[in-house]
Structure formats: structure tokens, C-alpha cells
Design a protein around this nucleic acid. Structure first.
Length: 582
DNA sequence: GCCGTTTTCGGCCCGACTGTTTTCAGTCG
């Protein structure tokens, strides 16, 4: 059976092929939008189909819902098969080359019978492209550069890797005397799990020297564009960075605009039009009844984002929510969530020590946690079957209890240290410690680490079996994905969530930027179902304790409030929750 | 093809940069 991502990809391909065909713009845009939405759903499309709620998905109407049903039922789509007989499917690869869009793809295909990336590269090398209308030597070279770049690319970069690079570039630009203000915008500011390219915004009345400094930044491999107020570069590690410079007086509209997402902005502009204004990155411009800008009328500008939203009659919408997934409707009704912030967290329920594969002792971890103002932590080393991580035998687990007790005595009044485990859910579905051992612990995490490619039924059964054990308090990194190398496990998440809801078992949002698991759409679903969450670092070293901001970003993207998260609660509330579970 | 607190029909965002042009189309975000 096709999964959501595969079905989404088919719609994205349809969009590209329809665009090449010259089909109505809004038609192919609808397919593209559907593709983008489907890739990010928190449930299987089959589940929506079963509930008859496919058309409740934003961007999915009657026609696309019908196509999804056909794909689910047969694994094929007649419409798509007929389309790729007309337009070669491989043209979508050509459109991935920087500088090649639908029109160029069509041109190469019709004039030179080029339908593959290899064919495009050969023709460009042979100097055949330059003679086509609208093409020249420079465009031909640009295409060759684009193909080379595509070959280097390893896909989107994890947030945790891209963000520090982006911040370093931003700080260099902010050090320039001409730069008045600067910020990361785009998907990094929204906290997306993976980053396609980096957007940086600088406020300055002297953009040219800022642009010059940017394209000369250390680590730049290639300059993709270099204008007065906008430039793009490709870094040596393949990351693309775009910088825009705007005057300080327009900072608010510009930061809003360049933070996106595209769909969020489209909705905001529609809202602006209802109020008689056209909104762009510079200002609100009054329009006439036909939507034409009144050139003589004064434009409205804002130096803060709050001003932009207020002008539209909205409270400020946090960047993490700006995905057009209901945030504007919610803002209009004044029912936006009060999103969790890092300062709400005062505990960490998942951390490792030298007892298994961590780098510090129990007390040393506790001292590190204390430095980060935590009130309590849970030591959760690996369990016995995870040999590669030096998992604890029952005997060693009991010895560790003594060390935890000792740390508590030494740190009394400063921080509480709880004794827990990150216990493996074994391949056969059984748990790694017997119930009587689990009963001795303060907090029990159950996690998947092995046999992650099992079929759906088996993975689901393992998770559900763990949730049903009365001693299990939380499922750690539930999908076990590892970005970008390992996909999430294939499970019936509807069933898993239902079981967690029934048993009051918490689900983790793991802050490790390679995990970020639960992902935001799943976190949002957990909130809707009233399943408690915990945002933990899974720290194996003190440095990893500082990954917490990534977990917070993910939670905020999932509309999570502090009250939904166990480690924001007071000690009394948390211990009462634990006691009630025992 | 989708969508609706004006609408079930008639809208659907818009500017910078590039390379090719002699005034603009294509691409991108």
C-alpha cells in the first residue's frame, strides 16, 4: 500500500507535468498544494478515507479526494498514467535544476527531445542549448552548474546542522557598521525539522556593502545571484543562503513576509485585500475595487511584525504556527494557543550516564542539570538487551539505584534525581525488564531501538504492548526516526495514540535535532487527544542538554502549551501524576 | 482544482534578479 509521502509525491509530479503542459495555473497549483499538505499529515490517508474525511484536509477537494481513494485502493492512478504518456515523467527531474522551470523543461523537450537529467547534461556540454530561443551561453553554463549542484546535494539539512551555520553568517553581517538589525527568517525561524535553504534578513539603508560582504563570506562555494538588495550563495557544504536587505522602517512587513510560509502569506494577503490593501514585503498599499494599487494613496509601513498583524486585526502569530494549518482562523477567533517556551521547562525526564553510553556520572549530570535551572531529572540509562550501548543488567540497575540515592543526599535541597530506565521494547514485543524490577523504579521509558523495519502490524503491537504495561510511563522517541538517515517506523499511529490516551501514557518530544520525535503534526494530535507530552533532551553529554530549544521549537509547531507537558509541572503535580499511575 | 463571516461562481500574491532582450519572460521564493 502506498504511504502518505508516496501519494504526495505523485501529486507533486502531476503539478509539475501539468505546468509543463501549460495547464491552467491554478489547477497545477492546487495539485502542488495538495502534495505539500499530504506529505505532512499526522495520520495515514487510509485512516481519513475510512472516516470519510479526506475532503476535510485543507487543499483536498472532491477531485483530489477521489484520486487519493483510487491510489489507496489500486496503488495506481489512471489520470496520472494517461498524463505521463503525454508528458514524460522524468521531466520533473529536469525542473529540479536551478534555473529550469516548466517553460524551459518544455522547450528542451519539444525542441531537443530531452527528457532526462543525463540528456540535459549531455546537450548542455555539447553546446546545443545555447541556440534555443531565450537561451545563451550563460544560461547553458548555469544549467551545468545547477546539475553539478544537484549531484552534490544530499537533500534537506537537519535544523540542528543548518541553524548554527546560518547564525554564524548572520552574526558576521550584523557586525558590519551598515547593518542596523538582522534576523533569520524562512523555515529556520519557523523551526522546520529540515531546512532547504536559509533566509537572512538585514535592515540597512546601505545595502550594497552588506551584499558585497555576504557574497565574500568564508565558506561560499558559488554565488547564485548578487543584486543590490538580494543575493544568494551556495556554501561549500551545499547549503544555500539567501540574504535580503530592507530599510529599517519596513522591518516588520519584511520579516513577516520572508518568514513565510508561502501559504500563510497568501492567506494574509487575501485578508489584507478584504480590508482594501495589497500587502507585499514593503508595505500595505491601498487598492481600488478591482484590486489595482492606488499609486497616489499613502502606503502603510510597519517596523515590527506585531504592527503588521495588528493592522489586519490579528494578534501576533508565532512563526512556528505559520503553516496555514488553522492558525489564521484561530487568530481571528482569538483562540491561539499560549505556546510553551523554554523557560516553562524545569526538568528533564530522559538522560544517560556512564552507566550505559553517557559521558558523565549520575551526580555530574545532576550538577549540569542544576546549572540549567532544572528542579528534577530522571536518570534513564539503557536496558540490558541493548549491548552496544552497555545496557544495564538487573544487578547493575539495582547498583545504580544506590548511586542515585547518594547523589540525592549530596544534592538535597538543590535538585531531585529520580531513578528510571530507557527500556528496550524488544523485537518480539516483550519488554526488557520484568514487572517486579520496573516496580522498583521512579519512572519508566519504553523505546524502540532494534528491528525498526518490521511490518506495520508488528511495530504497532510492540508499541501497544509497551503502553499497556502498567509500569511504563512514557514512550521515548516514538517513531525512532533518525534524520536524514532513517525513516520513522511504520506503525498504525491511530491505534497507538488511542492506546496512549486510554492508559494515560506520555509520549516524548525528543529534542535531539536528529530525532525531533514526535514530530510537530503528531504532537498536535497528542494534544488534541489529551495525551501528556514530555520534552526531553535524551542527553548523553552536557552539550546535548543544550538541544532543548529544538524540542521546544518542535512542540510549538505542534501547538503545544506548557500545561500539556509533564516537565513544566510543579514537582507536586508531577509526583502526584506518578503516584496516581502506580 | 480549491474555496467561501461578501461568494457555490469567480476569484486565486507579487517583486528581485538574470539573461536575454531592446522592453521582457522565466525563475525563484
Amino acid at each position: 500500500m502506498l504511504n502518505n509521502v508516496q501519494i504526495a509525491q505523485i501529486f507533486l509530479n502531476i503539478a509539475d507535468l501539468l505546468e509543463i503542459k501549460g495547464e491552467n495555473k491554478f489547477k497545477f497549483l492546487s495539485y502542488r498544494r495538495a502534495g505539500e499538505v499530504l506529505a505532512d499529515l499526522p495520520r495515514d490517508l487510509q485512516a481519513y478515507a475510512n472516516d470519510n474525511t479526506l475532503e476535510d484536509i485543507s487543499g483536498v477537494g472532491k477531485a483530489i479526494a477521489e484520486k487519493i481513494r483510487e491510489l489507496l485502493a489500486t496503488g495506481k492512478l489512471g489520470f496520472y498514467e494517461r498524463l505521463i504518456e503525454e508528458v514524460p515523467e522524468t521531466l520533473v527531474d529536469i525542473m529540479r535544476v536551478n534555473g529550469v522551470g516548466a517553460k524551459k523543461a518544455k522547450l528542451f523537450w519539444e525542441q531537443l527531445k530531452i527528457s532526462t537529467l543525463v540528456g540535459l547534461e549531455e546537450s548542455a556540454k555539447a553546446g546545443k542549448l545555447r541556440h534555443l530561443e531565450g537561451m545563451g551561453e550563460k544560461s547553458e553554463q548555469k544549467i551545468l552548474d545547477g546539475i553539478a549542484s544537484l549531484k552534490r546535494q544530499t537533500g534537506r539539512m537537519p535544523l540542528g546542522k543548518a541553524k548554527p551555520i546560518a547564525e554564524a553568517v548572520l552574526n558576521r553581517l550584523l557586525a558590519l557598521p551598515q547593518a542596523e538589525e538582522g534576523a533569520l527568517a524562512g523555515s529556520i525561524r519557523r523551526g522546520k525539522t529540515t531546512i532547504g535553504d536559509v533566509d537572512i534578513l538585514i535592515a540597512s539603508d546601505h545595502p550594497i556593502p552588506v551584499m558585497q560582504a555576504f557574497v565574500e563570506t568564508v565558506g561560499v562555494a558559488r554565488i547564485l545571484g548578487h543584486g543590490e538588495s538580494k543575493s544568494s550563495v551556495e556554501m561549500q557544504n551545499g547549503l544555500q543562503i539567501d540574504v535580503r536587505v530592507v530599510p529599517k522602517s519596513r522591518w516588520g512587513t519584511a520579516l513577516q513576509y520572508f518568514t513565510g510560509s508561502k501559504d500563510h502569506n497568501v492567506k494574509l494577503r487575501a485578508l489584507a485585500l478584504e480590508k482594501g490593501y495589497s500587502l507585499n514585503e514593503f508595505a500595505f498599499s491601498p487598492v481600488d475595487a478591482n484590486g489595482n494599487i492606488l499609486e497616489d494613496a499613502p502606503k502603510v509601513t510597519f517596523d515590527s511584525e506585531e504592527g503588521v498583524y495588528a493592522f489586519l486585526g490579528l494578534p501576533h502569530i508565532a512563526p512556528e504556527l505559520r503553516e496555514d494549518s488553522g492558525e489564521i482562523e484561530s487568530a481571528l477567533k482569538n483562540t491561539l494557543p499560549v505556546l510553551i517556551t523554554q523557560s516553562d521547562i524545569h526538568a528533564d525526564l530522559h538522560m544517560h550516564t556512564t552507566w550505559s553510553d553517557g559521558t558523565l556520572s549520575v551526580k555530574e549530570m545532576a550538577l549540569q542539570a542544576l546549572q540549567r535551572r532544572h528542579e528534577w531529572i530522571v536518570i534513564t540509562d539503557h536496558s540490558r538487551s541493548l549491548g552496544v550501548a552497555n545496557g544495564l543488567s538487573i544487578e547493575r540497575l539495582r547498583e545504580q539505584a544506590h548511586e542515585v540515592r547518594q547523589a540525592n543526599e549530596e544534592l538535597a535541597g538543590k535538585i531531585r534525581v529520580l531513578h528510571g530506565t530507557e527500556m528496550d521494547i524488544k523485537a518480539d514485543g516483550t519488554l526488557d525488564y520484568p514487572d517486579d524490577v520496573l516496580a522498583e523504579l521512579d519512572f519508566v521509558i519504553a523505546s524502540l531501538h532494534v528491528s525498526l523495519s518490521q511490518p506495520r502490524a508488528q511495530i504497532t503491537e510492540r508499541l501497544i504492548n509497551a503502553i499497556r504495561n502498567p509500569h511504563v510511563d512514557m514512550i521515548g522517541h516514538p517513531s525512532a526516526r533518525y534524520i536524514p538517515d532513517r525513516d520513522p517506523v511504520d506503525a498504525d499511529w491511530d491505534a497507538v495514540f488511542a492506546e496512549a490516551q486510554k492508559n494515560g501514557v506520555a509520549l516524548e518530544i525528543n529534542s535531539n535535532p536528529r530525532r525531533l520525535d514526535l514530530d510537530a503534526p503528531f504532537a498536535r494530535r497528542a494534544v488534541a487527544l489529551g495525551i501528556p507530552l514530555a520534552i526531553n533532551t535524551d542527553a548523553h553529554s552536557p552539550a546535548m542538554m543544550d538541544d532543548l530549544p529544538y524540542g521546544i521549537l518542535t512542540a510549538r509547531r505542534g501547538w503545544v502549551e506548557a500545561k500539556h507537558v509533564l516537565n513544566t509541572w510543579s514537582w507536586d503535580a508531577f509526583s502526584a501524576w506518578l503516584t496516581a499511575r502506580k
